[in-house]
C-alpha cells in the first residue's frame, strides 16, 4: 500500500507544477496593464512606471515566473490591488463559506444519489425506475444558474420561506446547497444504478440469494460494496462539476465564497487574485482526485498490487 501511495504522490507532482504554471500563464494573458489598474486612473505615467518596477512587472517573463515560483514556495500568493490586502488572507476569509457549501452539497448528493441509484436498479424497468432515472438525467441537464434563480423565485419571492441571498442566517445555505447538489445527485444516481445492475447480475449475488441470505444483506453487503468503485469515481468526477458549479451558485445567491470572489476579481481585473484563485481551484481538484485514487486502493486491494 505504501509503495502505491508514494508512487501516486510522485505522479501528482508534475500535475501540480502544471497547475501552478497554468495559473501563471492565464494571469499573464489577461488583457490590460495591471500596473495601470493598480495605480488608478489619476496616476501619472511616472507613478505607474514606479509601481510596475516595484511589482517586478518590468522584468522578463522568465524572471517573473521564477519570482512567482519562489514566492509560492514561501506561501506567498501575492497582493490584491482591489482589496489592498494579501491574496492569501482574502482567500482564507472566503474559503470556509465555499467549504461549507461544498461539503453540504456533497453530503446531500451522496445520500440522495446513492439511494436513488440503488432503488432504480432494484426496481429495474418499473415505473419507479423510469421516474428516478428521469430525475437523474434532469439533474445532470439542469443549468445550475437557472435552477438557482427558479428556487429563489419560488422559495424566497413567492413563498417567502427562505432567504434569497447572502449568508446572514443558518437557513441561507439551504437553497445554494440544494442547487449545487442537483447535478451531483444526477451523476451519482446514474453511476450507482449502472454499477448496481452489473453487480446484481453476478454469480456471487445469485449464490448469496440461493443460500438464503436476507434481501437487505444481499443488497447492502454483497452488491453495494462491490458496486462502490464506480460510485467513488462518480463522487470524484462530480467534484470538478461541484467546484465549477460553486462559482455559478455563489454568484447567483450572493454567497460570499471563493467562487463569487473569482467572478468579481475577473470583473475588477484583479490579476493576482484571479491567479491565486485559479491556482486554488486547480490544486483542490488535484488533491481531491488524489484522495479518491488512494481510496480506490483502500477499497479494492487489486489496485495497490497492480
Amino acid at each position: 500500500m505504501l509503495t502505491y501511495v508514494v508512487r501516486r504522490l510522485l505522479i501528482a507532482i508534475p500535475t501540480l507544477w502544471g497547475v501552478v504554471t497554468g495559473a501563471f500563464i492565464i494571469s499573464r494573458l489577461l488583457p490590460g496593464d495591471p500596473a495601470r489598474i493598480m495605480a488608478g486612473l489619476n496616476a501619472t505615467q511616472q507613478q505607474v512606471d514606479r509601481l510596475r518596477h516595484q511589482l517586478g512587472l518590468d522584468k522578463p517573463l522568465w524572471v517573473q515566473y521564477q519570482d512567482y515560483m519562489g514566492q509560492l514556495l514561501h506561501g506567498n500568493l501575492g497582493f490584491s490591488p482591489h482589496f489592498s490586502a494579501p491574496v492569501a488572507a482574502q482567500i482564507a476569509q472566503r474559503l470556509p463559506y465555499t467549504a461549507e457549501l461544498a461539503v453540504l452539497a456533497t453530503a446531500i448528493a451522496v445520500v440522495v444519489g446513492v439511494t436513488i441509484g440503488v432503488l432504480a436498479a432494484l426496481r429495474r424497468n418499473t415505473l419507479l425506475d423510469l421516474i428516478l432515472s428521469a430525475f437523474a438525467v434532469f439533474g445532470v441537464s439542469m443549468p445550475v444558474y437557472w435552477l438557482g434563480l427558479m428556487l429563489i423565485l419560488i422559495f424566497a419571492i413567492d413563498l417567502r420561506a427562505l432567504p434569497a441571498a447572502g449568508a446572514d442566517s443558518p437557513q441561507s445555505v439551504i437553497l445554494p446547497a440544494v442547487t449545487l447538489a442537483l447535478f451531483s445527485i444526477g451523476l451519482i444516481a446514474r453511476m450507482t444504478r449502472a454499477s448496481m445492475l452489473e453487480v446484481l447480475g453476478q454469480d456471487y449475488v445469485r449464490t448469496a440469494r440461493a443460500k438464503g441470505a436476507p434481501h437487505r444483506r444481499v443488497v447492502l453487503k454483497h452488491a453495494l460494496r462491490n458496486a462502490v468503485l464506480p460510485i467513488l469515481t462518480a463522487i470524484g468526477l462530480q467534484f470538478g462539476g461541484l467546484l465549477g458549479g460553486a462559482v455559478l451558485t455563489e454568484s447567483v445567491f450572493g454567497w460570499p465564497g471563493v467562487g463569487q470572489l473569482l467572478v468579481n476579481s475577473i470583473f475588477y481585473r484583479d490579476y493576482p487574485m484571479v491567479q491565486g484563485l485559479v491556482l486554488l481551484f486547480g490544486v483542490t481538484y488535484v488533491v481531491i482526485n488524489l484522495l479518491v485514487d488512494l481510496m480506490y486502493a483502500y477499497v479494492d486491494p487489486r489496485i495497490r498490487f497492480d
Partner: peptide
C-alpha cells in the same frame, strides 16, 4: 498535458 488540463474544473 492531459493531466494538467484535467486538473482544472471545466467551468473554472
Amino acid at each position: 498535458l492531459t493531466d494538467i488540463l484535467l486538473a482544472f474544473p471545466s467551468f473554472v
